[in-house]
């Protein structure tokens, strides 16, 4: 498998901070992989993904994206490979209308107008927002705005999409629509690499791999199953426990049988059904 992102011994301290926000971080991400970054607020997740896009000026360590080592000279090239969606739907909406916003990146890249029109329409159709092309952002819901932000990225066809808590300010319905766009995109022929920061366990569970941040350090990485089965890790880093784990704990309190290892919700359902049948 080809590596699309390599981070080697990355450290960073904000100019006015008294301690480093990123502390000797190294990891790699394969092309086409879906990776979630989890960790409590202030653990350095946003700073980390900003470093990948050259949005902070780190002095120590290296970042390589799609074979290009990030440097002041290569930063615009690297940014072509990465599309970023941020947390606040309002603060990243540049255009005065939906279509204008999607076109923003294409305009920056100097894409000719006929080509631009085609790509704007295709991208808006991909996120199911074409019928709102002429709307102003003030008349859209949060979920719709985030889908427009995604369309702006889809139109640029980057190989990597980074989501920094893109769903955390949305209601459950808005969150669901954004996630289903992502799943759809994974199956399309763009099939971008996805790197998403999230607090939502069901969202993290969809990833192939999790990176766990704590106080500026990458303290663990592994499959969702491996991470979710480590109750101590989850508790010490302030993460939620999966529902299956919470239920198992409650079953134990009632003196009932519990599975010997971590099971996903679906697996626990199966397991309970099997135990029920043995009664």
């Amino acid at each position: 498998m080809t590596k699309i992102i390599s981070v080697d011994d990355l450290s960073y301290q904000y100019p006015d901070a008294d301690r480093p926000t990123l502390n000797h971080i190294s990891f790699e991400i394969n092309a086409g992989e879906w990776v979630a970054i989890v960790g409590h607020n202030g653990s350095g997740k946003s700073t980390l993904v900003r470093a990948l896009d050259g949005l902070i000026d780190f002095k120590s360590g290296t970042v390589t994206v799609a074979g290009t080592k990030l440097s002041p000279e290569s930063v615009w090239l690297v940014r072509e490979h990465i599309g970023m969606v941020f947390q606040n739907p309002d603060n990243q909406f540049v255009g005065a209308t939906v279509a204008d916003d999607v076109a923003f990146g294409l305009e920056n890249a100097g894409v000719p107008r006929p080509e631009m029109q085609k790509r704007v329409q295709e991208a808006l159709e991909a996120v199911d927002m074409w019928q709102f092309a002429e709307r102003e952002p003030s008349r859209l819901s949060g979920g719709q705005k985030q889908r427009v932000a995604l369309a702006g990225i889809i139109a640029m066809n980057p190989s990597i999409i980074v989501l920094d808590e893109a769903t955390s300010m949305l209601d459950p319905h808005g969150r669901q629509t954004v996630l289903s766009v992502l799943q759809h995109l994974r199956r399309s022929n763009q099939a971008p690499t996805i790197l998403s920061i999230t607090h939502d366990l069901s969202e993290a569970a969809q990833a192939q791999r999790l990176l766990v941040m704590d106080n500026g350090q990458l303290i663990s990485e592994g499959t969702p199953r491996a991470i979710f089965s480590d109750e101590q890790l989850l508790e010490s880093t302030g993460l939620d426990l999966p529902f299956s784990t919470k239920l198992s704990q409650q079953l134990a309190k009632q003196g009932l049988v519990t599975p010997k290892q971590y099971l996903t919700d679906d697996e626990l359902e199966d397991w309970l059904w099997q135990s029920h049948l043995t009664m």
Binding site: D100, A103, R113, M156
Partner: peptide, 16 residues
């Protein structure tokens, strides 16, 4: 957000 979307100043842009 503008920087991450490749905005390098208002020159050399096309118009939608």
């Amino acid at each position: 957000a503008m920087e991450s979307r490749g905005y390098q100043g208002a020159t050399n842009r096309t118009r939608y």
